[in-house]
């Protein structure tokens, strides 16, 4: 299931970047650790038949570039506006994943995005990746307990 979720999240990210930011080329690769010092961390809980968490990590430069493209305005740093816009994009990606996997006969839901670090709980399964785009990279970590 982790692999299914992983692929669905990468595909949803591709669709959302294409539609909202006009960025069509993205490439995922395994994450070499999650060491992004400045950026926006968004955690989205998974509850129901699946139990776990998805953490998005948007580095500062990627976050700022995303909001610049959407607004056509200048941003120099992460503030409440930028963090909220990026959090909504994570929410949109997650919503698209739910739709894409709605035929899986599993009953689960995603919690609203929370701007924070990972919940530090131990999970049995996990997969992480970083996604390269023309405006910078973003990383994803999917953590689940067994089905």
């Amino acid at each position: 299931m982790v692999d299914n979720l992983y692929r669905a999240f990468v595909n949803a990210t591709r669709d959302v970047f294409n539609l909202m930011l006009n960025i069509s080329e993205i490439k995922d690769h395994p994450a070499d650790g999650f060491k992004i010092e400045n950026g926006v961390d968004i955690s989205i809980g998974i509850v129901g038949d699946l139990n776990g968490e998805v953490v998005y990590r948007f580095p500062a430069s990627t976050s700022i570039n995303m909001v610049k493209i959407m607004s056509g305005m200048q941003f120099d740093e992460i503030d409440a506006f930028v963090a909220s816009a990026v959090s909504e994009i994570a929410n949109i990606i997650s919503g698209n994943v739910l739709t894409a996997l709605s035929g899986e006969n599993l009953n689960y839901n995603l919690l609203p995005p929370v701007q924070s670090n990972s919940d530090d709980k131990e999970y049995e399964n996990g997969k992480s990746c970083c996604i390269d785009t023309s405006i910078g990279e973003m990383c994803l970590e999917i953590k689940l307990n067994s089905e």
Partner: peptide, 21 residues
């Protein structure tokens, strides 16, 4: 002000996605 900044950011992303998708 913080509430409005958060609202503005979410509104921007929501509106673009809603209309574009």
């Amino acid at each position: 002000e913080m509430l409005m900044q958060q609202f503005g950011g979410r509104l921007l992303a929501w509106l673009i996605n809603h209309v574009a998708a």
